[in-house]
Design a protein around this nucleic acid. Structure first.
Lengths: 195, 195
DNA sequence: ACCTGAACACCGTTCAAGT
DNA sequence: ACCTGAACACCGTTCAAGT
């Protein structure tokens, strides 16, 4: 960051994620990012053909990281489906969920995908991999195959959706999701609700 | 649409929603919308001070419609909490959920809110009103107050989240949500999973 | 190898002029 | 009352020129 006399493509990608975090897809603009990096915007075009190329590189990067990061973290942390489901929820509702800016960046990428077929393709791949992982956990708890996929959709869908409710705290999301898992697994209700 | 020689602010707002539907928040651009309406962009500035004013007007419009539309439809259609929950799910997963473009526009507005505090405020109000309505239904089924609010968050969160999973059909979402409601209400599981 | 600075096209905004 | 068309600033992109 300080004490380098020339930039790499990687530096621009990182700056791109900072911009995405701060301002969403519409903040992915050459001039603004160049300003933040204190170089002329002309410099950008030595590293990338155009903004589209930067976006593709960012997506490719995110795809590699996002698909495996959470999954491997969960697998290293716990063994057994029930514990891993709990660990997954911890991670997803933690301070900084993913390497590149966490759930705020994830949301921005999903936004972005909604109006860009190329982005949609990549997001589709990542979501599918994650859903399969979660479904495998539910399968391990003894659910039937179709039921495990449904439970995975509901848990993962609730993760995405709850994060988007305004004014909801991480703890509230965590409690709700853990409760949901117990209900999906058919466990008996208990005094578990919050706010 | 055909056979009017001058435009109203309302016409621009409608065109704004068409643009939002088709291209998301970043498609809310004066020149593009003016082109679609076959007038010069200068014309826009007679009706609105700037793009920000158009966006505010769209939001205000959406707020009025979005808060009450679904709620009143559900209340007119069915009586009794269980039936109304089912009707709510039907509506939310129907062909065209809301007047101004349905869930695609809703998603775009949520995207937009994530990086604009003013939009966030309005979305917050709307989501709160909806959550309160859903919570009241769960309360009516006999749940305790805190539990009913939790169930509302989980159902509404899952609605939002499932819609964002790529490659998922409306029928799949509907089945999943109905299943979720049964589980939240503590009803016995049955062979209900799909895909 | 990496960057600057000028150039040009595109879009937001203003405004004088038209009907 | 409502619209056009020219003007200007801002940003994406190109490119010749610098180190």
């Amino acid at each position: 960051m300080a004490g380098k006399d020339s930039l790499s493509a990687e530096d621009w990608i990182k700056a791109g994620f900072r911009a995405l975090w701060a301002g969403g897809p519409q903040a992915l603009r050459v001039e603004a990012i160049a300003r933040e990096m204190k170089v002329s915007k002309g410099s950008f075009y030595w590293h990338f053909k155009n903004v589209g190329a930067l976006k593709s590189a960012m997506l490719e990067h995110w795809k590699q990281v996002a698909t495996f990061e959470t999954i491997t973290k969960v697998e290293q942390k716990e063994t057994g489906a029930a514990a891993q489901l709990k660990a997954l929820i911890e991670l997803a509702t933690g301070e900084q969920a993913a390497e590149y800016g966490g759930s705020r960046v994830e949301a921005a990428i999903r936004d972005w995908a909604r109006f860009d077929a190329g982005v949609e393709r990549v997001v589709h791949q990542v979501e599918t991999a994650r859903l399969e992982f979660v479904a495998a956990l539910f399968l391990e708890t003894g659910e039937k195959k179709a039921a495990s996929r449904q439970s995975a959709r509901l848990l993962y869908g609730a993760m995405i959706g709850l994060e988007q409710l305004p004014g909801i705290s991480r703890e509230c999301i965590r409690t709700d999701l853990n409760w949901l898992v117990r209900r999906l697994l058919g466990e008996a209700p208990a005094g578990q609700a919050n706010g």
